[in-house]
Amino acid sequence: ELARRTPVLANIRPTGQYLMEDFYYAGGLRAMLKELGELIDGAQRTVNGRTLGENIGEAEIFNDEVIRRRVTPVMPDTGLAVLRGNLAPDGAVIKPGAADPSLHVHTGRAVVFRDYNDMAARIDDDALDIDAQCVIVLQHAGPVGAPGMPEWGQLPIPKKLLQQGVRDMVRISDARMSGTSYGACVLHVAPESFIGGPLALVRDGDLIELDVPQRKLNVLITDDELARRKAQWVAPAPRFTRGYGAMHQIHVMQADKGCDFDFLQRDGAGDATTNGEPEIH
């Protein structure tokens, strides 16, 4: 909802042309926030005791090619898009401006890697059955499965396709990626594959549909077939049996919940005493 009404003003890579250093010299974050105007709640108080509006009140843009004005944005909206469908019931994320526009609406054959090591071992194999229209799928890269949802989401393009001039492909995972990474990379698929999310049920050759304008992400199989695969799915062995790793895999929440620990959540009821704050003497 926020992305649909917020323009992209920072003309920096991967969505734009310039570097973060250029953004700094053009006025930086304060200048960009000020240009967003009423989209920013300037009444909110910040850590220095002043409101956000007071902190950015004197900011100015020194280069409006790097930090665009609202009348000439890099993109009028959709800096991020949240996708949903039978492949991501709880959502997935893509950065449309960082992807080849021709891939915003795309259907392709899945090439599935069961984990990062499988991908690393086979991605550059000349015998890999893959072409530029395929959709690369990486499983077991989420909060529990990796573990820790690492920055594996910018999956590599096979060497033999790079040699043919291919520079972008649709890539899907339950991992994340750096904000400076680029490509048609669908990330944060929830629920993740390691705990039995639909991403775990994708097989080589399945057709996958990506439709950014319609916010869709689907594997094109019937509900009955999806249910049959789910019934046959066998949960992988736990990554850890003791220590912090075991606690993490039991209590970490999914990407759509922020990968927080469930025991750190508050239900909004009670006071500091009932929420376990210690006495201080």
Score class of each variant (00 low, 15 high):
Ala110Trp: 01
Thr274Asp: 08
Val105Thr: 08
Val170Phe: 04
Gly91Asn: 10
Arg203Ala: 12
Glu277Lys: 15
Val135Trp: 09
Phe194Met: 12
His251Lys: 15
Glu192Gln: 06
Gly79Trp: 03
Lys160Pro: 09
Val212Tyr: 03
Thr180Ser: 10
Phe261Asp: 10
Ile136Cys: 04
Ala59Tyr: 03
Gln265Met: 02
Gly91Gln: 14
His104Thr: 02
Lys216Pro: 07
Gly276Gln: 07
Lys216His: 01
Pro7Val: 07
Gly28His: 06
Ile208Cys: 07
Ala146Thr: 13
Pro213Met: 00
Arg228Leu: 15
Arg266Glu: 12
Gly145Asn: 04
Ile123Tyr: 10
Leu29Asn: 15
His140Trp: 04
Pro147His: 11
Met253Glu: 09
Ala184Phe: 06
Gly258Val: 11
Pro238Thr: 05
Gly145Ser: 08
Gly79Cys: 00
Val111Cys: 05
Gln254Ile: 02
Ile280His: 07
Gly53His: 01
Leu19Gln: 11
Gln232Ser: 13
Met20Arg: 10
Cys134Thr: 04
Asn275Lys: 08
His188Gly: 05
Phe194Ile: 11
Pro158His: 15
Thr72Lys: 13
Ala88Phe: 08
Asp206His: 14
Asn11Gln: 00
Gly37Met: 13
Asp115Arg: 02
Cys259Met: 07
Ile208Glu: 10
Leu83Ile: 01
Thr6Lys: 08
Gln254Val: 06
Glu1Phe: 13
Ala190Gln: 05
Pro76Lys: 13
Leu226His: 01
Val74Arg: 09
Leu217Ser: 12
Leu138Phe: 04
Gly27Gln: 00
Ala43Ile: 03
Thr274Tyr: 10
Gln254Glu: 15
Ile123His: 15
Pro198Leu: 07
Ile12Leu: 03
Arg167Leu: 09
Gly108Ala: 01
Ile221Ala: 12
Glu209Tyr: 08
Asp125Asn: 14
Val135Ser: 06
Val234Lys: 14
Tyr25Leu: 09
Asp223Trp: 01
Ser102Cys: 08
Leu161Pro: 01
Val189Tyr: 13
Gly27Tyr: 02
Arg69Ser: 14
Thr107Ile: 12
Ala127Ile: 03
Gly243Arg: 11
Lys159Gln: 13
Ala31Glu: 04
Asn55Arg: 08
Arg69Thr: 13
Ile195Leu: 15
Lys34Asn: 11
Ala190Pro: 05
Ala272Glu: 08
